[in-house]
Design a protein around this nucleic acid. Structure first.
Lengths: 129, 129
DNA sequence: ATGAGGGTTCCAGCGAGGGGAAGGTCAAGG
DNA sequence: CCTTGACCTTCCCCTCGCTGGAACCCTCAT
């Protein structure tokens, strides 16, 4: 398979696939003409990576997850720990965003949103509380 | 005021303050020795920027907000619209993160997390559903 | 022969700064 | 007077996960 086929079958842009090779996540062979030559296992790995990235795992997490996946003697505890740490980071981000949302939501609610210059949002940002 | 004073009084790192000057958000004067020389108004602007950034506004949003703040004849509607757009982006991010959280949470719940290699998380990532 | 539509490499850039080097300036202490 | 240490300056590279584009090569159909 050439990169275009792998791209459409995995849903990942060709650029991303080249990048993943660059950083050593996959190691496709090369044809005589220099083109990357992907096997089914490469496609499978790329799909794995796509799903892991979609769950928000970092590239380094993905590297670890792939290694665990390929290690037949892994302990599921290691996978679970990684997932739990990631889950905690997600929760933290949600909490941060939620705090912003609440604060900004309050300010927005207090803003008339008309043609007058009076604005509680700007007032808050400027420090007049 | 030198940059160190402004930094400690605004809570922003000196690097960030120099960066904000670089991209034209503030324009401190210079002393004879080449040091940046901040007035109270600069400090005030930096505090404004700090609060806007803490609410998750992008630098470009901050630029617009500052312009609105300094425009005595602004319409609060313009501020509110910017805030509402930002609020929508925040909500979108929260929704994305929440979806990840839910999916990953389910997988984690199903994973024994012991010394055996069997792992529903890896199973899901590998596409065996 | 030529054009379209693959593929390849390499370089630059995004946002919002952070790290650190190399050097100038200033006040206090010996 | 000299030095030390704490500031300040500019400059350039690094982050993360790609993305865009330039310049070039390969293959097949017309």
């Amino acid at each position: 398979m050439n990169i275009g086929d792998v791209s459409s079958r995995s849903g990942l842009p060709a650029k991303t696939i080249r990048y993943y090779e660059d950083i050593g996540l996959i190691k496709p062979h090369r044809s005589a003409n220099g083109y990357r030559c992907f096997a089914e296992t490469d496609l499978h790995k790329l799909a794995f990576l796509g799903r892991a990235r979609a769950l928000g795992f970092t590239i380094e997490d993905c590297r670890t997850l792939m290694a665990l996946y390929e290690d037949e003697s892994r302990a599921s505890a290691d996978v679970k720990q990684l997932a739990l740490e990631h889950l905690a980071k997600i929760e933290e981000k949600i909490a941060d965003l939620q705090a912003m949302h609440d604060t900004l939501g309050e300010l927005v609610k207090c803003c008339a949103g008309d043609s007058r210059p009076d604005c509680p949002i700007l007032k808050d940002l400027s420090g007049e509380s």
